[in-house]
């Protein structure tokens, strides 16, 4: 229980609180822009969590893609579509409400059970910092190793996918009537 531990735990709890409350407020807010802003807060908080897990590359990508690029997309869509303020979130007792509640509870219980079972295998007090013994250079080496050597095929396929998406969406004439509107 040293100061670095306390420091990491405080950061972690703050970010976790951010995550949880941002997610709740994105669902509950009336205006889409507000919910989008809460989403941005969430993605940034998740990025910070990644940072503290010594996954810098992942943190950067998370913040860059999820924190900036995706909100840009969303803002574009919102600008072109929303005209009025939403009403409150749907809470009627339709079948799907009951099913979600039941399945959410079941899911949580199941995974909790798995956690408890696995806690008998992996002890709770298992700290990371002593384990990841790589420095930044070695980490970078390892990740690029994974991307370009071991999982090159997947990387190439994602690239191809991205290319096809760009080409396809740009050939779609999405904003046909938007010039005058």
């Amino acid at each position: 229980m040293n100061s670095s531990d306390i420091f990491t735990s405080i950061i972690f709890y703050l970010c976790a609180a951010n995550v949880i409350f941002s997610s709740i407020f994105t669902i509950l807010s009336r205006r889409i822009m507000h919910s989008l802003l809460f989403a941005v807060i969430l993605f940034f908080a998740v990025g910070i969590i990644f940072l503290f897990l010594s996954a810098e590359y992942n943190a950067i990508i998370q913040i860059a893609v999820y924190g900036v690029a995706i909100p840009v997309l969303f803002v574009l869509a919102i600008m072109f579509t929303s005209h009025r303020i939403d009403k409150q979130v749907y809470l009627s007792f339709t079948p799907r409400f009951i099913f979600t509640i039941i399945s959410a509870i079941l899911f949580v219980l199941t995974l909790f059970n798995i956690l408890l079972i696995s806690s008998s295998v992996i002890e709770w007090l298992f700290t990371p910092q002593s384990v990841i013994s790589l420095n930044r250079y070695e980490m970078f080496n390892a990740i690029s190793d994974g991307l370009y050597i071991r999982f090159l095929l997947s990387f190439e396929m994602i690239a191809l996918l991205t290319l096809s998406v760009i080409v396809g969406l740009s050939s779609l004439n999405i904003f046909k009537g938007a010039r005058n509107g």
Binding site: I27, L91, F97, T100, L111
Partner: peptide, 23 residues
């Protein structure tokens, strides 16, 4: 887990399509 479940509930119970995509 908590984030996943809240996202799931949001996907099901939200009226606005964009909010659904966010969740």
């Amino acid at each position: 887990l908590i984030l996943f479940v809240i996202g799931f509930i949001g996907v099901i119970l939200v009226k606005n399509i964009i909010k659904v995509l966010i969740c």
